[in-house]
Design a protein around this nucleic acid. Structure first.
Lengths: 241, 241
DNA sequence: TCCGAAAAATTGGCATACCAAATACCAACA
DNA sequence: TGTTGGTATTTGGTATGCCAATTTTTCGGA
C-alpha cells in the first residue's frame, strides 16, 4: 500500500475512533468579515428607522483593514443566510422582514420547538430535564423587573434554546437559532410585553412538568401553543411596515 | 405636477395596475456559478463512492468561462448552505451527511410539514385542498411501477411539497425544500422501498381526508407520524457510513 | 530499495486594477 | 426658473496576479 493511500484513508474517517479535525488555523479574513458583519447587524436596530440601511463594500473593507474580496465573500454568505440583500448599483442592504414574514418565522419556530419537545421526552435524560428546571428557577421570568425588556427576552430565549438542546438534535438547534436571530431583532417593537411574562413563566413550568412526565403529546402541544400564541400576538399587536 | 413626479409615482407602485419590476438584469456570473454548481451537486451521486468528492476552483472557473472570483463567491454561498465545505490546501468538497444527520433532517421535515398541515386546515381553501386530491389521483403512488424508484420519489416529494404550499407559508416551503435536497440525495440508498408505497398512498389519502375535514390535530398527527416513520426507517435500514 | 530532505508544483486567500452600469452633478438652453 | 443633455463620479462585478501554506515530487545518500 502506497503512502498516499494511507494518508487518504486517515482523512476519510476515523475508524480508529480518532477523528482529526483540522485546527481552526488562523481565521481567514472571510470568516472575520462574516463574524464582524453579523455582529454589526445583530446590534443594529433594524426596525428603528424606515430608511433602507445601506452598507458600502469599500467602506467596510477599509474599516476591517482588508480588501473587498473577502468582504464580498462574507456578504455573499450573509445574503444566502437572508440577512443581507445586494442590489447592483444600489448597495448592500440589511433585509427588513415584513410582519407576515416574522409571523411565519415564529410559526416555523413553533413547529421545530414542539418537535424538539417531543423528542426530548423520548431521549433526554432525567438529569438534563432537571437542569431545565434549575434554569427556570434561576431566571424565573416573573422576577425580572418589568422594565428590563432585553433581559426578559434573553432569559426567555435561553429557556427555549435549552429546551431545544434537550432534543439532542443539533439541526433543530441550528435552525431555530437562525429564526431567533430575526425574531429577536423586533423585540424592541414587539415589546414582548411584560404582562405576558407571568403567562410565559407558568407556560414554561407546565412544559417542564410535561417533559418530566415524559408525555410527548402534551409537551409538544404545550410548546406549540405557547409559541403560536406569540405568533398571534405579533400578528395582532405589532406594527412593522 | 412635474414630469419627474409622475415617473417617480409610476415606479413606486402601480395604482394604475401596472407594476413595473426592475428587470432581472443579466444574471451575474456569481448567480450563474451558484446555479451551475448546485445543479451539478444535485445530479451527483454523492453517496456513490466513499472517496471524498473534490472540486477545484480553477478547473470550475475554466469550465464556466469565468474567473475565480465569482466562483469563489458562489462556493461561499453553497458552503453557507451546507452543501460544500472548503478546506484550505485540500480542496472544496461536497459534504456527505451522516445517517444521524439525515435522520435529524427528516425529523425537522416532519416538524415543519406537520405544522404546515395544521395551518392548512385553517387557511387553505376548499379548492386548494381539492387540487391536492387531484394530484393524489394523478400520481397515485401505488400505480407506479415497482422499479421506477426515482419516479416514486419524485411523486412522493411532489405530494409533500403541494401539501406544504397549502399552509400559505413560503418560509415553511423554503425550509423544507432545503431539507428535501439532502434527503433526496440518498434516495438511491434508502431504496425508499416500494413496499412502502402502498402504505404511503393510504397515508396520503388519510391526510387529505383530515385536511378536508379541517381537523387540525389529526392532520398534524398524521403528517408527523408519516414522516417520522420514514426517519425511523432510515435509522434502521439505511447504511451510509 | 528505502528514507528523508529539499525543491517544485498546487492551491486557496487576498489585493489590486479595470470595466460597465447607474447615479449625481452641472452647465447650457428654453 | 425649470428642463435637458452630457459629463463626472460612484459602485458593484470581474479578471488577474501575487503570496504563503501545503503537498507532491525529486533526488542523493544510507
Amino acid at each position: 500500500m502506497s503512502s498516499k493511500e494511507v494518508v487518504s484513508k486517515r482523512w476519510q474517517s476515523g475508524e480508529n475512533g480518532l477523528t482529526i479535525e483540522r485546527l481552526p488555523a488562523k481565521e481567514s479574513f472571510k470568516s472575520k468579515a462574516y463574524a464582524a458583519l453579523k455582529e454589526a447587524i445583530t446590534h443594529m436596530n433594524i426596525y428603528g428607522s424606515s430608511e433602507p440601511m445601506l452598507l458600502d463594500e469599500r467602506d467596510i473593507s477599509e474599516r476591517l483593514g482588508a480588501s473587498r474580496t473577502p468582504i464580498r465573500e462574507a456578504v455573499a454568505m450573509l445574503e444566502q443566510e437572508g440577512l443581507l440583500r445586494a442590489v447592483p448599483r444600489r448597495g448592500i442592504m440589511v433585509v427588513r422582514r415584513s410582519k407576515a414574514e416574522i409571523v411565519e418565522m415564529i410559526e416555523a419556530w413553533a413547529a421545530l420547538e414542539s418537535m424538539a419537545a417531543r423528542l426530548a421526552t423520548q431521549r433526554a435524560s432525567d438529569e438534563a430535564i432537571a437542569e431545565l428546571r434549575t434554569l427556570f428557577k434561576k431566571f424565573d421570568l416573573s422576577r425580572i423587573e418589568r422594565d428590563r425588556c432585553d433581559e426578559y427576552s434573553s432569559a426567555n430565549i435561553a429557556f427555549h434554546q435549552a429546551l431545544i438542546r434537550l432534543s439532542g438534535s443539533s439541526l433543530l438547534a441550528a435552525m431555530t437559532e437562525n429564526l431567533f436571530f430575526h425574531v429577536r431583532a423586533i423585540r424592541h417593537r414587539t415589546i414582548f410585553e411584560m404582562d405576558r411574562a407571568q403567562r410565559s413563566a407558568s407556560d414554561h413550568l407546565e412544559i417542564i412538568v410535561a417533559l418530566e412526565a415524559r408525555d410527548a403529546d402534551r409537551a409538544e402541544r404545550l410548546v406549540r401553543d405557547h409559541t403560536l400564541r406569540l405568533a398571534e400576538h405579533v400578528e395582532n399587536h405589532v406594527d412593522l411596515d
